[in-house]
């Protein structure tokens, strides 16, 4: 399967070309955010960095403390659905164009993705050691007081993937399992 290379910041046109089932990889900067960072952002906290066109990663990394810096030991995705209640507001507030996580997002959230021009990219949960290998460097960290798992980490990644486009901007979601096989609209 062909791998599409994404280099954030993403523009809307490119994001709208992606189709459920496509495989992508990311090279560039991504930002972690989960429960607590989401709660802060949707309640109006000032964004410490610009996220427009950015890629957010649902991840609470496991780090090893070295005297001068951190080493990333394991850093796979966390359950995205925990953020479902505030996901749409988060995307509207930040202008993020791609969400990387695991387990999928609810139908109530996915239905907004066509309007928002945003995609959901899946990496298998549990594959933390593998994901950590694609993170080249910690470029920064914000809101460290929230704890290692909940802080906002800025990662520079290289060939981060393969990620599956699991929710696209055309109304497709690969998580509609109840009715058997999913039919993908507008597949190239």
């Amino acid at each position: 399967m062909k791998l599409i290379r994404l280099t954030p910041p993403l523009n809307e046109k490119d994001v709208r070309k992606l189709c459920a089932g496509d495989l992508v990889s990311i090279t560039g900067t991504i930002v972690t955010a989960r429960d607590k960072a989401y709660a802060k952002i949707v309640s109006g906290a000032k964004l410490p960095i610009k996220l427009e066109g950015g890629i957010v990663y649902h991840c609470g990394p496991l780090l090893k403390r070295r005297p001068s810096k951190f080493k990333i030991v394991s850093a796979g995705p966390t359950t995205s659905a925990r953020m479902d209640g505030v996901q749409v507001k988060f995307l509207e507030t930040t202008g993020v164009r791609a969400v990387v996580g695991k387990g999928g997002i609810g139908e109530d959230v996915a239905k907004h993705f066509p309007r928002l021009g945003c995609v959901y990219l899946a990496f298998p949960g549990g594959a933390g050691a593998l994901a950590a290998r694609r993170i080249e460097k910690i470029e920064g960290a914000y809101w460290r007081e929230l704890g290692d798992a909940e802080a906002m980490w800025i990662f520079r990644v290289k060939d981060f993937g393969p990620l599956v486009v699991a929710v696209d901007t055309k109304g497709n979601s690969l998580y509609r399992h109840k009715n058997g096989t999913q039919k993908i609209k507008e597949k190239r």
Binding site: V73, S74, A75, G76, G126, A127, G128, A129, L130
Partner: peptide, 18 residues
Amino acid sequence: LMLKNLEIARKLDAPICQ
């Protein structure tokens, strides 16, 4: 990817999942 991850975790002696 899951199986590959197990291999890497074993080789690096790192936790499989964060």
